[in-house]
Amino acid sequence: MMKCYDCAEEGKTEEASVVCIVCGKGLCSAHAKEMPLQVSVGKPPNVKHLHKGLPHFMCNYCLENTVEDACV
């Protein structure tokens, strides 16, 4: 079973329940950050969006170093 990368750096052994979508690290539920992924289908002007985004997970490092840059 995969272990949480961030827990291992802290000297703990916790099983990973998700994988960071950016870097691929295994993460436990305490270290995983859920981000909604907006999904749309169709071509403009007939684009439709799902009511809820699909969940994807990121580690703290990737969240801090990618999301802020993407929003600017």
Rank of each mutant, 00 (worst) to 15 (best):
K3S: 09
K3T: 12
K3V: 13
Y5T: 07
C7R: 08
A8L: 13
A8G: 06
E10G: 00
G11Y: 01
G11A: 05
T13G: 04
T13M: 03
T13F: 02
E14W: 02
E14Y: 01
E15C: 00
E15G: 01
E15V: 00
V18G: 00
V19D: 06
I21W: 08
I21D: 14
I21N: 13
V22E: 07
V22R: 03
V22T: 04
G24C: 08
G26R: 05
S29C: 03
S29G: 06
S29T: 08
A30G: 08
A30P: 00
H31V: 06
H31C: 12
H31G: 04
A32Q: 08
A32W: 01
K33P: 00
E34A: 11
M35T: 12
P36Y: 03
P36D: 09
P36R: 06
Q38S: 14
V39Y: 11
V39P: 02
V41I: 12
V41D: 05
K43D: 13
K43Q: 13
V47G: 02
H49A: 08
H51T: 09
H51K: 13
H51I: 04
G53C: 12
P55R: 03
P55L: 05
P55Q: 04
H56P: 00
H56C: 14
H56R: 14
M58H: 02
N60Q: 10
Y61D: 14
Y61T: 09
C62K: 02
C62A: 07
C62Q: 01
L63F: 15
L63V: 14
N65G: 06
N65C: 04
V67M: 09
V67N: 02
V67Q: 04
D69Q: 07
D69E: 09
A70I: 14
C71I: 14
V72Y: 09
